[in-house]
Simulated scan of single mutants.
Amino acid sequence: MQLTSPTVFFLLLSCCLWDVESKNVASVISVTNGGQWGEWGERKVCRTSEAKGFSLKVQLGQGSFSDDTSLNGIRLICTDDSVITSAVGKYGTWLDAHYCPSGFLASFSLRVSKERLFDNMAANNIKFKCTDGSELEGNGLAWGEYGKWSKSCEEAGICGIQTKVDTHKGIFSLDNTGLNDVKFFCCT
């Protein structure tokens, strides 16, 4: 049997995607206070390991009469040192990473601003609990309130992410919000 170029490409692509998605996802953890705007990005999963740390993409406060988006992205750092992200907003800068002293990320709480008449921001920061019992807080902004903690990954740590992001609407939109919500995947 002779393989054509498109067939070879498809076989190579499906092999690589199968490897990325082959990690057994045991459960999904989420919180109830996420923002309402945006679309869910792709699900991303660590190739062979759990997440040992994270970093945030944050837009600092823009001052009066400017549009704030605050939290725009979350990166997970896997134990094999690979980095995964789902959807990411346009604004802000990637800040320093935070790592569990030992173990993996296991549960989270999201800091979210309530809906306002103008300049909504949605998510502003995140905290994680590690499997070793330690707690890590991101270096996002202090606006809004932290909600309840998610359930904890039971068998292993967090190994995947999916984010809900309000994408840039252009110069005629007066209110972009950045990252609104996130869910994480627990693996076996």
Rank of each mutant, 00 (worst) to 15 (best):
S30H: 11
A122C: 11
V58M: 00
Y91E: 07
S27A: 10
C100D: 01
A123I: 00
I126A: 04
F184I: 05
E137N: 08
Y146V: 03
I29S: 07
V31Y: 11
R43G: 02
H168F: 15
C15T: 15
L71E: 00
G89V: 14
L95T: 14
N120T: 05
E50I: 07
E135K: 12
C187G: 08
Q36E: 12
N125K: 05
S86T: 04
V20S: 14
V112H: 03
I84T: 03
G157N: 08
D96R: 05
Y146P: 02
L17P: 07
D96T: 13
G160C: 00
V88Y: 09
N139T: 13
F65G: 03
S109R: 09
R43L: 10
A51W: 05
K169S: 13
A142G: 10
S107N: 08
E137Y: 08
T93G: 11
H98I: 01
T48C: 06
W18H: 15
G144C: 02
Y146W: 13
T163V: 01
K44W: 02
L141G: 00
N24E: 13
T69W: 06
C78W: 00
S70Q: 06
L13K: 15
S173E: 00
K90G: 15
E154M: 14
G133Q: 06
T131H: 07
F185C: 08
A123Y: 04
G147C: 11
N120M: 01
S150M: 14
T188H: 04
I84A: 06
V112Q: 02
F185N: 03
G157S: 09
D67T: 06
A122L: 10
L110V: 11
D181G: 03
V83G: 12
Q59T: 06
W143Q: 10
L76G: 03
E39N: 12
G61T: 05
D132N: 09
W94K: 09
S64K: 00
S82D: 15
Y91K: 10
L60S: 09
K169M: 07
G41T: 10
C159S: 03
G61W: 09
W37H: 06
F9T: 12
K148C: 14
K129A: 01
N139V: 11
W18S: 11
K169D: 07
A122D: 08
F172G: 04
F9V: 12
R47T: 13
S66T: 01
G178I: 02
D132H: 04
S150E: 10
D80L: 13
T7Y: 09
C186L: 01
P6Q: 12
N139P: 06
T32Y: 12
L56C: 04
V45L: 13
S152V: 11
L141S: 04
W40P: 04
I161M: 00
G92N: 11
G170M: 10
F184W: 02
A26N: 15
C186N: 00
Q59L: 02
T32L: 13
K183G: 08
G140R: 01
V83Y: 09
S5N: 15
Y91W: 14
M1E: 14
L11K: 13
E154H: 14
K164V: 07
G61E: 06
S14W: 07
V8Q: 12
K52F: 02
